[in-house]
Design a protein around this nucleic acid. Sequence first.
DNA 1: CCTACCGATCGGTAGG
DNA 2: CCTACCGATCGGTAGG
Lengths: 210, 210
Amino acid sequence: MRHDVRVRETTAGPATGGYAKGRIRREDIITAAVAVYGEAGYHGSSLREIAKRAGITHAGLLYYFPTKEALLAAVLERRDAEDAEREQLQAAPGVDVLRHFLALAEHNVRHPGIVDLYSRLAAEAVAEDHPAHDYFVRHYRAAREGVVGSFRALADRGELRPGVDPAAAALTFVALMDGLQVQWLTTPDEVDLVGSLRFYLGGLLTVPLG
Amino acid sequence: MRHDVRVRETTAGPATGGYAKGRIRREDIITAAVAVYGEAGYHGSSLREIAKRAGITHAGLLYYFPTKEALLAAVLERRDAEDAEREQLQAAPGVDVLRHFLALAEHNVRHPGIVDLYSRLAAEAVAEDHPAHDYFVRHYRAAREGVVGSFRALADRGELRPGVDPAAAALTFVALMDGLQVQWLTTPDEVDLVGSLRFYLGGLLTVPLG
DNA sequence: CCTACCGATCGGTAGG
DNA sequence: CCTACCGATCGGTAGG
C-alpha cells in the first residue's frame, strides 16, 4: 500500500497545541472539505474550492494541511472521532446494537451530505492506491466485527431465526446499509432507507426490534 | 436536469452506417473507456488516457465522440445493449429470475472491471447534474420493477415466506447487490458475493434456489 | 496566512 | 484521423 494515510502526522502542524484560532480554522477547513468531497468526490475536489468555502486562499489552506492527502486524513480522523463518541453510549452486543444502527441510519437520512461523502469516498477508495483505501479496509472489517458479535449474542439467546449464520448476516447487513445509501441518494422519494433495514432485520430475528 | 445524456445522438457520427473500420474503432474506444472509468471514475478519467489505450490521440478520439459526455453515453448505451441481450434468454417472473441474478453476480465476480465501473459511476451519478444521473434513476427503477414482479409471482405460489412484502424485498435485494460489490472490491478475500446473495434469498423463500 | 508563480494536465478547437 | 494550439484549472512552492 503506497499512499497510506498517516493520520498521526495530521495532528501535528502549525496550529495545534493551544492556539484556539488555529484550531477553529482547522475545523472550518475540515467542515468545508467534507461538503466538497460529498459533492465532487475526493479526486474531483480542488483545494481552491475548499479554501474558498473556508474563507482563505488555497495556499493558506496548505499552511494548515501540507498536502491534499493530509486534509483527507484529517477528514477521516474527525469522522472516526465522531463515530467513537457516539459509540461511547453503546449497549452490549445484541438487539440494542442493531437498534443503534437503525438510529444511525435515521441520523444519516437527516444529513445527506455525510452519506454523500461516505458513499463517494467508499467507491473511489476501492482502488488500492487511493489514499483512503486502507481506511475503508479497516472500516469494513470493524463494521462487520461489530455486527457479527451482536448476531452471535442473539443466536445464543435464541433470538435469531434457526439456521441463520451470524457472519453472513453481518456482512449482508453492512452491504445493505451501503447499497441503500446510494440508491436513496439517487432516488430519495422511492427508497425508504430505515424501513428497508427494519425489513431485513425483522426477517432474521425472532424478537421485535421495537 | 441540465446535462442529460442524449443516447440517441451518439449513434450518429462520422463512422456509422457501414464503414467497418470506423465501427471497430468506436468499439475499441468504448472498451478503453470502460476500463479507465472503472479505474478512475468518469470525472477522474481523461480523454488522453482513454485515447492512448485505444491507440490514437485524444483529438482523434474527439473525431468519433465529439465530447467527453458523448463517450459516456456510448458506454452506457453499450452496457444496456449487453444487458438486453442477456435478458433475451430470460425466464418468466419467479425463482428463475432470481437465479438469473445469481448468475449475473457470478459473471461479475469474474469481471471486476465491470463492477468497478458500475460502482464508481453509480456513486458519482448521485449528483443531479452528473451526466449519468438520469441513467441511474432509470436503471434503479427498472431493476426494482424487474425483481418485484418475481417476488409477487413467488408470493402468489406460496413460495415466499409469509408476511414478506415483495416491494421491500426487491428494493433490499437491489441495494444488497450494490453494497456487496463495493465491499467485495475493497476486500475481495473477505467477501463472498454470490454466497451473500444466496443467504439473503434463502431467508425469504420457502423453495430451494438450486 | 497572502501574492505570485511553477509545471502538469484538462477538454476542446482549428486546420488540415 | 494528426499536429499544434487555446484558456482554464490543478497541487504545490517561494518568499515574505
